[in-house]
Design a protein around this nucleic acid. Structure first.
Length: 859
RNA sequence: GCGGAAGUGGUGAAAUGGCAAACACACUAGCCUUAGGAGCUAGCGCCCAAAAGGCUUGCGGGUUCAAGUCCCGCCUUCCGCACCA
C-alpha cells in the first residue's frame, strides 16, 4: 500500500522543493567572469512587458531559451542567460487612471508577480543581472545616450507632421501606425498633427542597416526581407522641371523643397523622361499651397483630394484608392527637351516619399497609364522593346529591356546606358542628380506621456536648447503626479519638474516635458545585462567585448522590424561612439511560432487564453514546458491542446517511476564498469548472446544521445528530441521484465538511467534534479558533462534493408550492418519473394546502396 | 502586385533523394485496480468481408534506378510590404 503511494509522480511536491533550493544558490545560473577560460555563450530571450501575467507565448519563448541555456551549461560553456523588464509604457498610465495606482507601484508589483511565475516555471535566469528599464539606474543611461546623440547630431528637433493617437493622447512612430490606426487601438484612426519633436537620425545608417542584412546569415530570411522592405532603398534620379511662369506669392519655406522656378521630381526611370506628359504633385506639396492661395476653386478641389487620400490611408487601403487629380492650370518645362507639360495635383502622390512630386510617363508606367487614360493626357512611346515579344507592342511597356525612341539625341541607347547619361547631363547642367531614396524615416522618439524616460534637455530663453549636464543625470521622473487623459505632456503640469535654472546662464529655464519612446529602452538593454550594476557607465566596454555579439537571440517575429531595427541602429551608434566593437547585436536570431488555440492566436477577446499558472498547477512546470517543445517544432505555430499536456505529464510520470524503481540497482552499479564498451572495441561483436537486452538498450541509448546532440547543434527540432527520449523510455520499459529479473548488470542500469536523466535535463529540470539525486549523484546536473555518444555502442550489428523492384518495395532482407554491395545484392536476389517476381524476366541493372537499399531494374 | 512560410492519417506531427506516417493525442477492444485526470496489453492512413493485392504526401508535368523531399507550371492558406514614383 505504502509502496503504491510512493510510485506516484507528484510535480506539485517536487517542483517547489527544487525551486527553493535553486533560489538559495545564486551561483547556479550565474555567468562566470571572462577569465574563467571557458568559451562564452550568450543566450537571450526578448524581455517581456510587465503586464502582470505571463502568457503561453512567453512560456514557449522561455522554454526554448532555457533548454538551450541548460544544454550549453552542460556542454561546458560560460553561459549568460539573463532576464529583465521592458517596464515603461502606456498600460501603466492606463492602469493608474483606472485603479488610481501610481504607475511605478503598478509596474513593480506586476514585475514581482511575473518573476514569481518565472520561478515557478523553473527558468534558469541569473537574477543578479536583472534589468528593469523604468528604474533611474537604467533610464539615466537612456538620457546619457540621448545627450551623446545630440552631440553627434544624431538626435535633433524638428517640426513635423506626426502621427497622433487620440486614444493614447500621444505621438506614434511610423512603425506604430498599422493600417492608418494606432497599433494599440486598432479602431482608432491616427490623426496628423504638427508638433516639434525629437528624432533620431536612423536614416544616417540606412545603407549600413541594409548592407548588414546580407551578413546576418544566422537570422531568418523572413526577418531580413522585412527589414529590407522597411528600409526600402530605391535608386533613381531627382530632376528639376522648370516652372513655365515664376510663382511670386504664397511661397512655402525652403525646407519644404519649394523654389520659385523649379519643381523637383523623383524617378527611378529617368530614361523615360522624354515621355513625361505631366507633372503630378502630392496635395500637401508646398507648391500646391502657392497655387491655391490665389485660386479658391482649385483650393476646394485639392482639399477634396487630400480628404480622399486621408480616408484611404485611414482605411489602410491606399493601394485601392481611386485615382483622382486636378489640373492646376500651371505648366512645367521638361529640362531635357523643353516640352511644356501641365502640372496636376493627384490624390495618390505621397508627400512623404521622394520629393512629393513625380513626372508622369503614361507610355511606360501602369499607374501613369491608367491616370492619363482617365483624364485624356497624351501617351507617348519612348522605349521600344528589343525583342518583339507577345504583348510588348502596345503601351504601357514597363520593362527596362528596351532602347530609347522619340528621345532626341538619346535615341537608340539602352535604358541603362540612357539612365547614366541622362544623370550626367542633369548634374552638369545643375538641374538634377542621381539619388538614393529610402522609405525608412528618422525615428520620432518624443512622447507626450508620463511613464517614460524624461528627455534630458532644457529650454532657456537666453541660451535656447541646453543639454542637462552629465553630472546632473538622471533627470528623475517625479513620483507624485496626477495622471489624466488630457492632451499635452503630464510632466508639463508639474512645476517642480518643469522649472529649473539654465545650466549655462543660471537663469530661469524650463525642462523638456516629453518622454522617450519605450523602444529606446529595449534598443540596448541586452548590453546592460553584462554589467547591470555599473553606476558610472552604461556598461564596461571590455565586458561587452567578451560577451558580444549575442550568440542566440530568441523572440517573436512581431519584433522583426521595430525592435530589431532600432537595436541594430543603436549598436552602430554605440560602435561609432567607441563603446562597443561589434557591428551587430546578435549573431543568430530565432523567431518562434505563435501559440494558437482552437485556430486562433490566444487572446482575451477570443476567450481562448490558457493560463500558465493553471497549467503548472494541474500538470506541473516540467509538463507545461516539455509540451510546449514537443507539440511542434519551435519555429512553427503551436496548437495548444490540454490533452497533449496531460500526455506529456504521463510520460514524465513514466520516467519517474522507471527511474525510481531501478535507482537502487543503478546505485549498486556505481564504480563498476560494464563490459560492453571495452570488449566491443576489440572485435566489434558482443561476447555473449545472453547480453542481448543490455546491448539493445545501450545501443538505443547511444543512438538517442547522438540524435539529440545533433539537434541542439543547429536544427533545434526539440519536438523530435522529446520523441526520441520517449522512444528510449519505451525501449527501457519494454525490458522491464528483464530488468526486474536482474538480467541487466547494475553498471548498465546506471549508465542507462543516468544518461536518460542527463538527456532530459534541458527540458524537465525539476524532475531531472529529483532523479539525479535519486541516482545518488551530487551537485547540480548542470555541472555534469553532456553525455557523449559512443559510435561503437550506437552501431547496429544487423540491418533490415528494403529491396525494391523497379522502385517498388517488395521485401526487406536482414543483413550484417557492414555488408558490402556484393553481399547485399546476393541476399536480395536470394530472397524468395524477389525470386518469384523476377522469374522469367531480365534484371537490367542493380542499384545497391549499402545500409540503405537494393533496387532491381527488371524488364 | 512584390517578398516570406506552409499544404502529409480523425488531430499535433515525423522522414541527410532510399521501407511515408516515427513520437504523441484522440478513438476502439481487453486486462488490472485501493476508481485515478492512474497503470498494462493490443488495434488504429485509404480500398477490399478477410487474406493476397492495390492506392496514398494540394493539383499537373519533369529529372532520377528511386521524389513528401530536387526542377518547371498551377491551386489554396497564413504572414509581411504595397499607387514608394
Amino acid at each position: 500500500m505504502a509502496e503504491e503511494n510512493e510510485l506516484r509522480y507528484d510535480p506539485a511536491a517536487i517542483e517547489p522543493k527544487w525551486q527553493q533550493r535553486w533560489a538559495a544558490d545564486p551561483k547556479l545560473y550565474a555567468a562566470e567572469p571572462a577569465t574563467c577560460g571557458k568559451p562564452k555563450y550568450y543566450v537571450l530571450e526578448m524581455l517581456p512587458y510587465p503586464s502582470g501575467q505571463l502568457h503561453m507565448g512567453h512560456v514557449r519563448n522561455y522554454s526554448i531559451g532555457d533548454a538551450l541555456a541548460r544544454h550549453m551549461w552542460m556542454r561546458g560553456y560560460n553561459v549568460l542567460h539573463p532576464m529583465g523588464w521592458d517596464a515603461f509604457g502606456l498600460p501603466a498610465e492606463n492602469a493608474a487612471l483606472k485603479n488610481n495606482t501610481p504607475p511605478r507601484e503598478w509596474t513593480l508589483s506586476n514585475i514581482a508577480a511575473m518573476k514569481r511565475q518565472m520561478e515557478r516555471l523553473g527558468l534558469g535566469y541569473d537574477w543578479a543581472t536583472e534589468v528593469t528599464t523604468c528604474l533611474p539606474e537604467y533610464y539615466r543611461w537612456n538620457q546619457w545616450f540621448f545627450l551623446r546623440m545630440v552631440e553627434k547630431g544624431l538626435a535633433y528637433r524638428k517640426k513635423s507632421k506626426v502621427n497622433w493617437c487620440p486614444e493614447c493622447a500621444t505621438v506614434l512612430a511610423n512603425e506604430q501606425v498599422v493600417d492608418g490606426c494606432c497599433w494599440r487601438h486598432e479602431d482608432t484612426i491616427v490623426e496628423q498633427r504638427d508638433l516639434v519633436q525629437w528624432f533620431f537620425r536612423i536614416t544616417a545608417y540606412a545603407q549600413e542597416l541594409l548592407d548588414g542584412l546580407d551578413k546576418l546569415e544566422g537570422w531568418p530570411e523572413k526577418v531580413r526581407t522585412m527589414q529590407r522592405n522597411w528600409i526600402g532603398r530605391s535608386e533613381g534620379t531627382e530632376v528639376d522641371f522648370f516652372l513655365a511662369e515664376e510663382i511670386g506669392q504664397g511661397l512655402g519655406t525652403r525646407d519644404q523643397g519649394l523654389e520659385k522656378t523649379r519643381i523637383r521630381v523623383f524617378t527611378t526611370r529617368v530614361d523615360t523622361i522624354f515621355g513625361a506628359t505631366s507633372v503630378q504633385l502630392a496635395p500637401q506639396h508646398a507648391l500646391v499651397a502657392a497655387f491655391t492661395a490665389s485660386d479658391p476653386d482649385l483650393n476646394e478641389k485639392v482639399a477634396e483630394l487630400l480628404e480622399q487620400q486621408k480616408k484611404a490611408r485611414e482605411a489602410g487601403d491606399l493601394g485601392e484608392i481611386e485615382k483622382h487629380g486636378v489640373p492646376t492650370g500651371h505648366f512645367a518645362i521638361n529640362p531635357y527637351n523643353g516640352a511644356r507639360v501641365p502640372i496636376w495635383v493627384a490624390n495618390y502622390i505621397l508627400a512623404d516619399y521622394g520629393t512629393g512630386a513625380i513626372m508622369s510617363v503614361p507610355g511606360h508606367d501602369e499607374r501613369d497609364f491608367e491616370f492619363a487614360t482617365k483624364y485624356g493626357l497624351p501617351i507617348v512611346e519612348v522605349i521600344r522593346p528589343v525583342q518583339k515579344t507577345e504583348g510588348a507592342e502596345h503601351l504601357p511597356f514597363v520593362s527596362e529591356e528596351g532602347v530609347l525612341v522619340n528621345s532626341g539625341e538619346f535615341d537608340g541607347l539602352s535604358c541603362t546606358d540612357a539612365q547614366k547619361l541622362l544623370q550626367e547631363v542633369a548634374a552638369r547642367s545643375a538641374f538634377g542628380e542621381a539619388t538614393v531614396t529610402y522609405r525608412l524615416k528618422d525615428w520620432g522618439v518624443s512622447r507626450q506621456r508620463y511613464w517614460g524616460t524624461p528627455i534630458p534637455m532644457i529650454h532657456c530663453e537666453r541660451d535656447g536648447l541646453v543639454q542637462v549636464p552629465d553630472d546632473q543625470l538622471p533627470v528623475l521622473l517625479p513620483e507624485q503626479i496626477e495622471i489624466t487623459q488630457q492632451g499635452g505632456s503630464p510632466l508639463g503640469r508639474v512645476p517642480a519638474f518643469v522649472n529649473v535654472t539654465c545650466p549655462k546662464c543660471g537663469g530661469p529655464a524650463k525642462r523638456e516635458t516629453d518622454t522617450m519612446d519605450t523602444f529606446v529602452d529595449s534598443s540596448w538593454y541586452f548590453y546592460r545585462y553584462t554589467d547591470a550594476r555599473n553606476a558610472n557607465a552604461p556598461f564596461d566596454s571590455e565586458t561587452v567585448k567578451y560577451w558580444f555579439p549575442i550568440d542566440q537571440y530568441i523572440g517573436g517575429v512581431e519584433h522583426a522590424i521595430l525592435h530589431l531595427i532600432y537595436s541594430r541602429f543603436w549598436t552602430k551608434v554605440m560602435r561609432d561612439l567607441g563603446l562597443v566593437v561589434n557591428d551587430e547585436p546578435a549573431r543568430r536570431l530565432f523567431t518562434q511560432g505563435m501559440v494558437i488555440k482552437d485556430g486562433h492566436k490566444m487572446s482575451k477577446s477570443k476567450g481562448n487564453v490558457v493560463s500558465p499558472d493553471d497549467m503548472v498547477a494541474r500538470y506541473g512546470a516540467d509538463a507545461a514546458r516539455t509540451y510546449s517543445l514537443f507539440a511542434a517544432p519551435p519555429d512553427r505555430d503551436l496548437d495548444w491542446k490540454e490533452d497533449g499536456v496531460a500526455g506529456v505529464s504521463r510520460f514524465l510520470a513514466r520516467v519517474w517511476r522507471l527511474t525510481t524503481r531501478y535507482a537502487p540497482v543503478a546505485r549498486a552499479g556505481r564504480g563498476e564498469s560494464h563490459p560492453f564498451r571495452s570488449e566491443r572495441g576489440k572485435d566489434g561483436a558482443p561476447a555473449d548472446q545472453s547480453t542481448g537486452v543490455s546491448l539493445r538498450l545501450l545501443r538505443k541509448l547511444h543512438q538517442t544521445i547522438a540524435k539529440i546532440t545533433l539537434d541542439f547543434e543547429g536544427r533545434w527540432h526539440f519536438n523530435t528530441c522529446v520523441a526520441a527520449i520517449m522512444e528510449l523510455v519505451n525501449e527501457i520499459q519494454g525490458a522491464d521484465a528483464q530488468l526486474a529479473a536482474g538480467e541487466v548488470a547494475p553498471p548498465v542500469v546506471l549508465e542507462l538511467l543516468r544518461t536518460l536523466v542527463l538527456l532530459l535535463a534541458p527540458f524537465a529540470p525539476h524532475l531531472v534534479a529529483e532523479l539525479w539525486e535519486e541516482l545518488g549523484e551530487g551537485g547540480s546536473v548542470l555541472r555534469a558533462p553532456w553525455p557523449a555518444s559512443d559510435p561503437e555502442l550506437a552501431r547496429e550489428d544487423e540491418l533490415e534493408v528494403p529491396v525494391q523492384i523497379n522502385g517498388k518495395l517488395v521485401t526487406v532482407v536482414r543483413v550484417a550492418a557492414d555488408a558490402d554491395a556484393k553481399t547485399l545484392e546476393a541476399a536480395a536476389l536470394a530472397d524468395e519473394k524477389v525470386q518469384g517476381r523476377i522469374a522469367g524476366k531480365t534484371v537490367m541493372k542493380v542499384i545497391v546502396v549499402p545500409r540503405k537499399l537494393v533496387n532491381l531494374v527488371v524488364k
